[in-house]
Amino acid sequence: MCYDCSSSSGPSDPSRRSFARFLAAGAGLTVLTACTPEAPRAAAPSSSPSSASPSPAAVTASATPTAEAATVPPAPSEPAPPPSPSPSAALPRQFSLTDPASPWLIVNKHRPLVPAAYAPADLVRPAVAMTVSGESALLNSTTAGAAEAMFAAAARDGVSMVLASGYRSYSTQVATYNGYVAARGQADADTASARPGYSEHQTGWAFDIADGGGVCGFQPCFADQPAAVWAKANGHRFGFVVRYPWMFHPITGYYYEPWHLRYIGVEPATDMVNRGIFTLEEYFGVGPAPGYL
């Protein structure tokens, strides 16, 4: 225990001789090390030399550690743990996350379409009720077949569902996005409409629905309409998810769109429901995309 190590004593001070004897007893080095940050001065010779008194050289050598003893090798760094596999990795079948023709394609504000002007080769008009015409009435063939099955099941449950917006070509998305920018400014437009080359509508894998009664179309209140409620609860049975769910815009980059459905396949859509995962970014492990890079 260290009480006061700052004071010094003359060569003939009795306390100095007592301290030298304490060193000879074998405990002085511990006290000296704990109390003094620098190497101690050599003890002055006593008027009555004794074989028990250490020589100045011995004190200095004992109190000053060698470079080898003072050097503590750094602890080896532990390797970084391997990344956890995405939940989708548990499925028996795997698909590309970058190929626009893949049902698992992830397109968001960090992941544009390649090529930017991609157009599906198998666009068809599904046999469902719709309020649009032209290219907006088209979907890729896989999505169209699943949409027909889903709309028919909703009708059997007494729910009227209609297709309100399907495929959009690159040129159409240019006009749509620029219209939002002109009306609301670019910062606000980026929360409501995808930039050209970043839209799911361009892939043919996504479409917007409306209620048969036409209530709350493309408005937040659509979430409470029968078509939206039914699609949210049953869409996975046909391979669909609500792509931009409530309160997940920090991940998806878009505010809640209960009308925007995306086809990914029955297996992954059902697995997402069973696991309680709401976004494709989380399920496929690609990271959030709150804004454009």
Score class of each variant (00 low, 15 high):
92 P>H: 09
166 G>C: 11
179 G>C: 01
25 A>R: 13
69 A>N: 09
2 C>N: 04
45 P>H: 08
20 A>Q: 11
239 G>S: 12
169 S>T: 12
6 S>G: 05
95 F>S: 04
197 G>T: 07
180 Y>H: 13
252 T>L: 00
144 A>L: 05
91 L>M: 13
156 R>W: 10
26 G>E: 04
94 Q>D: 04
132 V>F: 08
193 S>F: 00
242 V>I: 15
233 A>E: 09
125 R>T: 15
45 P>T: 11
197 G>C: 05
123 L>M: 14
83 P>Y: 13
112 P>N: 05
18 S>K: 13
101 A>P: 11
215 V>F: 02
217 G>W: 07
270 T>E: 10
205 W>D: 01
87 P>N: 10
200 E>K: 06
208 D>M: 04
203 T>G: 09
118 Y>H: 08
62 S>G: 04
200 E>R: 06
187 A>M: 01
221 C>Q: 14
158 G>T: 15
184 R>F: 15
270 T>N: 08
144 A>D: 07
131 T>V: 14
228 A>R: 02
282 E>D: 14
45 P>F: 08
112 P>K: 03
157 D>I: 13
142 T>C: 00
38 E>F: 04
113 L>E: 02
181 V>I: 10
278 F>N: 00
203 T>P: 10
12 S>C: 08
71 T>A: 12
243 R>H: 09
214 G>M: 11
239 G>F: 12
250 P>V: 03
98 T>C: 07
55 S>I: 09
259 W>V: 03
87 P>C: 10
283 Y>T: 01
84 S>P: 02
143 T>Y: 07
123 L>P: 12
224 D>F: 05
131 T>A: 12
121 A>S: 15
118 Y>D: 03
203 T>N: 10
192 A>M: 14
275 R>P: 02
281 E>C: 00
261 L>P: 00
141 S>I: 01
39 A>F: 05
